[in-house]
């Protein structure tokens, strides 16, 4: 197995606050990897560093062997590394289908490609994916009128529409009705198996991440605390300490 994402010795400080200190981790292609840690442990900062929202102070980030720590957001997305947001972001003034249609992969797209008419295959794929997340009946609604949970599902479908090689999800189950969480876990797994998308997931819900991930990294105070298979991490006393605040 090869690592699709390789983070080596990454540090990032905001003013005097050290958000990440010397973090190294690897995500193997085709797997589901989790990232956990108490609030303020630097998980989202690490995500943002990887996808290019701010420069890192030290270290290197490689995606498929290519150094991306100095690339901009767009260029990283066009390599096939897509993230979803903790505060869900969709195009509120457009219908769900339109949201999907404009989300298709931009990997080799040039500006002129945008002037083509809409293609039936793309529309069909958009419909299929909306069906996949259970939003097909709402496809013609304005995305802004959906509930928070539905917007989250839409954002997930948009990410799939983009056909990324790797998808980074920031708390995919936060704010979702608990009865729907099992369905979502199932869909995440199917996205991984059927579409071959590597998943890297920040999650607070322990039950979810233990069910989902094959490998888990745990951050605390900006540093990597532990990593291993879910049950190893779950039973690691340092992880328990970090969560219970026994420092």
């Amino acid at each position: 197995m090869t690592a699709i994402l390789k983070v080596a010795g990454v540090s990032k400080a905001f003013g005097g606050v050290q958000a990440n200190r010397n973090v190294s981790l690897e995500v193997e292609a085709g797997r589901i990897v989790g990232l956990i840690g108490p609030n303020g442990s630097g998980k989202t900062t690490l995500f943002s560093s990887i996808v290019g929202y701010h420069p890192i102070d030290e270290g290197s980030i490689r995606f498929e062997g290519q150094e991306i720590s100095r690339l901009r957001v767009v260029d990283i997305a066009r390599l096939g590394l897509i993230r979803t947001f903790q505060q869900t972001r969709i195009y509120g003034g457009m219908t769900c289908v339109e949201n999907m249609l404009i989300s298709s992969s931009q990997r080799d797209a040039r500006l002129l490609d945008l002037f083509q008419a809409r293609s039936p295959e793309r529309e069909e794929r958009a419909g299929d994916l909306l069906d996949f997340v259970g939003l097909y009946p709402k496809r013609k609604l304005e995305a802004g009128s959906l509930s928070f949970g539905q917007q989250k599902l839409l954002e997930f479908a948009m990410a799939l529409m983009n056909q990324p090689k790797m998808l980074m999800l920031d708390e995919p189950t936060a704010g979702i009705n608990p009865t729907l969480i099992n369905g979502l876990i199932d869909r995440l797994k199917r996205a991984n198996e059927q579409f071959g998308i590597t998943l890297f997931v920040i999650e607070h819900n322990m039950r979810v991440i233990m069910n989902l991930a094959e490998h888990i990294y745990c951050l605390a105070h900006g540093e990597l605390l532990a990593d291993g298979r879910p049950e190893e991490v779950q039973n690691d006393p340092r992880v328990l300490d970090a969560y219970l605040g026994a420092h």
Partner: peptide, 21 residues
């Protein structure tokens, strides 16, 4: 065209549009 969708997407959430490539 999809260009129309693209500029609508920029209007609704430019950061998202950028993050989607």
């Amino acid at each position: 065209t999809r260009f129309g969708l693209a500029i609508n997407a920029i209007r609704d959430d430019e950061d998202k549009a950028e993050a989607m490539g």
